[in-house]
Amino acid sequence: MRRGLLTWDENELPVSVLEARVAKLRAAMARDGLDGLVAYTNIAKPAAVSWISGFTPYWSEGLLYVPREGDIAFATALSKRVAEWISTVMPKGEIIPTPQPGIAIGKKIAASGARRIGMPDIEDVPARQAKDLVAAAPDITLVDATETFNSVRAGIDDAERALVRRAAEIAAAAMQQLDPAARTAQDLIAPCEGFARSAAAEEIFLSCVPDLRKDARFQRTDTAGALGETFALRISLAYKAGWVRVTKSFAREAKLAEKFAAAERSFSALALPLCDPAAQIAAALKGSCAKMKTWTIEQPRGSCPLVPVAGSIVSESSLQAAAPCTVTIECDLAGARWIAARPLL
């Protein structure tokens, strides 16, 4: 569950920005012949609703309705008392606490006479919500609005850029709290977590590769144990729905540590826009002895806060070259495994 700071600040996310996003969305809905758009949210799939409304749930689920005209409405299975809290973190729109969000939104749609309703990421939406929606509004046609939503989401505004930048600052500072002499994953992870939450992170997921000589796979604090001679820490962090990842590799041996540091300095030269990412990453690393084995670029898409959009494991790139992203690389560095990730803003 989300248990970091969840609040809304007019200075960071002005109502005018949210209104501008909804206006863009409505223009796209008109273009694509939609009378309304319904977005689903839970803590694993919060990004569409948080982009439209500023709201991220800490638990449970809900549906946000954006009609072609009029106020947006958010129906959630969270309780009536929690709705009071939602009203403090979601500045615009009606809040409807109900055990059946689909029915509540369906009734609103039926009352409005809207007929063609789009849902982003409709494949993933719980069928019960869609079924309830249609049961309460039997005259509607429900269609996939993933492309409609993503076409609008492609443009990033200054407010979002600032929130992602703040997330990147907290993540970088949290990484600085790490004790390179730590002997266990728990000792490595705990201070970073504490710092990030004290710095008002909304969420933080920490994992580590305890021994880079043996494996490249990240583990959590409950399964990773003793750290080896080389290890890596990965911080995935959100600040008010802006997500970044930072990964850093460490070597206890001084000469290898210096090589890791040199590779990191080279990697830090990478900058937006990423028009030919593989070539640009390779060029950035040229000054170091790092040889890239895999690379991944992540950006928000639909209801997912971060999703691979380009890289070794992505068959078809959908990278937005100038938009903020997180770049993760795994390299061979003088025979040692070296993993790094950083946000580009």
Partner: peptide, 16 residues
């Protein structure tokens, strides 16, 4: 949220 930061630090240190 600072209180929560302290408790989460404790839990991560104990493998939670």
């Amino acid at each position: 949220y600072e209180l929560i930061a302290e408790i989460e630090t404790f839990f991560r240190a104990h493998g939670i």
